[in-house]
Write a protein that binds this DNA or RNA. Structure first.
Lengths: 219, 219
DNA sequence: ACAAATTTTTAGCTTTGTCTAAATATATTT
DNA sequence: AAATATATTTAGACAAAGCTAAAAATTTGT
């Protein structure tokens, strides 16, 4: 598989998660930053190779083989992201571009050993699940902390209110993107929560909880 | 610079170390595993870009800019080799192929941080010097331990006699490829040596010393 | 249901890096 | 120094992956 083929497969995979029907060449073109006509060409090639299902004008979807391949690329990408953040002190938002290159390195041994070095992580720095070597993959959902089930765990991935006072509050309380948060209790009276961050319990109001996005395990 | 251009520059650099005159397209073709005619095409392009000096039928050499670029690629390659051996437990002889891919990843920040993670190593697992970020580079020479100057240090990189008894002897005495060896004393009477390995002194006969290759610093 | 708008595909061209076969320079031998 | 051998370059072609412009299919609006 060429690098370009791998990129197409990866993007079709990501688009396919939200869309149940065939993915349009237009949508792919937008993501790949290329023209729809180029996509048509490539999609035909991928179809000939048995990686996607394609019928003219009807959009594209991955075959089981294509999906397996896509999962492997996503696995590489996310493992490298963990490496960059954990071992090389990249920050959260600097890793994507580099991981985009590293994901194409071809060596099964390399990925196995990298996985081991990192302690077999299950999630990347953005809170997204890392597919296993065998291709198991359980997507995590982004949701508001206030809507998360009790006793669930997740990673803080974003804010709804990005006003200065709110961000200041988060900073003061050591709540940062990428942090693991466990939802312990909900007080029905005022909708406030008790959560655990860094092995410390803390109490947050409903207003805070309704403005923090987490990536939670499906429970 | 494309990946292919980088590979040409790298190979011209390596060939240029032994050869003082222009490098022939034939020699490059052999190393690149391609045809001389393809080399001619590429070499013209590199010449247009100011990376090599080229006159028809007269061979090729790197310009200062080309050399700088080559050193950067060699630096990447060797740093990745150190990473693979030190951090991922690759063995000595498994690293080249993977490093060949990793060397082309484009991110200055990545290499800086990798360098730091590895503790700013000066030599790769094969005992070859790693060019500095600034492009300083002092080549190491492979020579027999028996011919190394006193008080010099080097890395064991090969054997001249590869018979089973010799290899067995090395194994028994914990002398392995990749090991750092310091030459302490030479006994003129029988040509034997006192060397230091792993902070322990040991005595070896001239016969052993004349069959071990080291990469030594130029002194 | 039919015209208009949009999406998708086709056809033909470009660039990069390669190849083969033929032509031309250089090197070697006698 | 001429003849032969070897090395190098040129010319023309090809595959990959992209583009533009035009044609065809699908979807939308009335």
């Amino acid at each position: 598989m060429t690098r370009s083929e791998e990129n197409y497969i990866k993007i079709i995979f990501h688009l396919g998660k939200s869309e149940k029907k065939g993915i349009s060449t237009n949508a792919i073109a937008k993501q790949m930053d290329t023209k729809p006509s180029s996509v048509t060409d490539m999609v035909k090639k991928l179809s000939d190779k048995g990686l996607v299902n394609y019928r003219k004008y009807q959009g594209v979807s991955l075959t089981p083989v294509g999906r397996k391949k896509a999962l492997s690329i996503v696995r590489n990408h996310r493992l490298w992201e963990v490496f960059l953040v954990e071992k090389l002190d990249f920050s959260w938002d600097e890793v994507h571009e580099v991981a985009e290159q590293l994901e194409h390195i071809k060596s099964e041994q390399l990925i196995d050993k990298l996985d081991k070095l990192l302690g077999f992580p299950r999630f990347d720095p953005h809170g997204d699940a890392i597919p296993t070597k065998e291709g198991e993959f359980k997507e995590r959902i982004k949701q508001l902390l206030s809507e998360a089930p009790l006793n669930s765990m997740g990673i803080c991935v974003g804010v709804r209110d990005s006003s200065a006072p709110f961000l200041k509050f988060l900073d003061k309380n050591n709540i940062a993107l990428g942090q693991t948060i466990k939802v312990l209790e909900k007080e029905e009276f005022d909708g406030s929560f008790i959560i655990e961050i860094d092995k410390k319990k803390m109490h947050i109001s409903n207003q805070i909880a309704s403005n923090l996005y987490l990536k939670m395990d499906e429970v």
